[in-house]
Simulated scan of single mutants.
Amino acid sequence: MTQPIGEEFQIPKPKVLGPRNDPLDIIQTRLRTHGRPASIAGPMVRYSKLPFRQVCRHYDVDIVYTPMILAREFVRNSHARMADFSTNKGDAPLIVQVGVNNVSDLLKFVEMVAPYCDGVGINCGCPIREQIREGIGCALIYNPDLLCSMVSAVKQKYGEKLRLETKIRIHENLDETVTLCKRLCDAGVDWITIHGRTRTTRSSVPANFEAIKYVVDRLGDKHVPIIANGDCFSRQDLQRITEITGVDGVMAVRGLLNNPAMLSGYDTCPWGCVELFWHYALEYGGLPYQLLQHHLFCMLENMQLKKSLLKKLMTIQCTAELLDWFDENFILKRHGEPGFAVQKDIPYK
């Protein structure tokens, strides 16, 4: 989005979906076309911004999500719109995830973002107490009437012109999850992502893939595609999770923050990710310095950068100083230079 949305702004029509950018088509055909399930970079609060999304696309990620955007703020506040969402023509297929608790805000939100994305995902998995108190995130899996009414409202208005996903967690009673998924299918959802933890399960506890398999097995042959989420930290995990659960694709989240190339088979983050991230961060601009710094820290820590250099990195206060520090300590190639973004190991000077 490059233009503010206000009373005088004419909202364009939704994007035209085709084989290259229709996320549902990609999910349904990846096993046949690529010999692997669909790979998805899930939403991370603050971190799934445009520069990072573009890096992930270089490394066998089929579909990428934005961070969760609160509908009530987005539809009412132009500053929130400018801060929360940026994209470009190369940012596809793109799913914009929304935190929402009513049909009216959701329809307004979808109208605003539909011209700039390929689908919208309703967040039904965020376990943060503040969000749950407002009826957002995990609260929605315990309010199926509201959730299904929101899905129906969007699909009745947009049909096949816009894809709609719901990202849920499992219930303590798995049969409740089965029932919810069946209702979502009837409401018209295009696919469902299931996180293999309950609302109260900590991330340190392994994801329950047998629970996802239980749900998939009981949905029968006519259900929409199911994506598994949780504990995907390598390409091997993507295959393993698919084999256990029988899903159509796998969503990775935390693992990509440390190693955006992991779904290409890299066990550790390659230096090429660092060069790509620098390129996109400077090319697109608008990324808060602390976020840029932390992305680089996560990647370099995964690459086992010398601890003394990691500590120094976190003391630097601005982008210009950080870029100078990289040039002093490493061979940091720029876009257009021979060998840009192909180096695997850290090129110390």
Score class of each variant (00 low, 15 high):
L276Q: 12
I226D: 00
G246Q: 03
C269W: 05
I212P: 01
D267E: 15
R197W: 08
P260A: 06
S203Q: 11
L287G: 07
I194A: 02
C185L: 06
V215G: 03
H279E: 13
F209Y: 11
L291S: 13
V224Q: 12
G188Y: 11
P225L: 03
G285L: 14
P225A: 04
R197N: 06
W278L: 11
I241R: 06
S234I: 01
I226H: 00
P270D: 14
D190L: 07
V250C: 06
Q293R: 15
L256T: 05
G196N: 01
D237L: 02
G249N: 03
I212Q: 00
P225V: 03
G220C: 05
L184M: 11
D186R: 09
R235K: 10
L287F: 04
D248H: 14
D237G: 02
Q293M: 09
D186T: 08
L256I: 08
L257K: 02
C273W: 08
H223M: 09
R218Q: 14
L184H: 04
H223G: 11
W191N: 04
I244G: 04
R199K: 13
I244F: 04
T198Q: 09
N259E: 06
V253Q: 03
N229H: 05
V253A: 15
G255C: 09
A281S: 15
T201A: 13
P288F: 11
D267V: 07
I212A: 01
T200E: 15
L238M: 15
L219K: 08
S203I: 10
D267F: 10
T245L: 09
D217R: 13
I194G: 00
I227A: 01
G230Y: 02
Q236Y: 11
E210S: 10
L287P: 10
R254P: 01
A187W: 10
S234K: 06
A252C: 08
A261P: 07
I212W: 01
Q239W: 08
L256K: 05
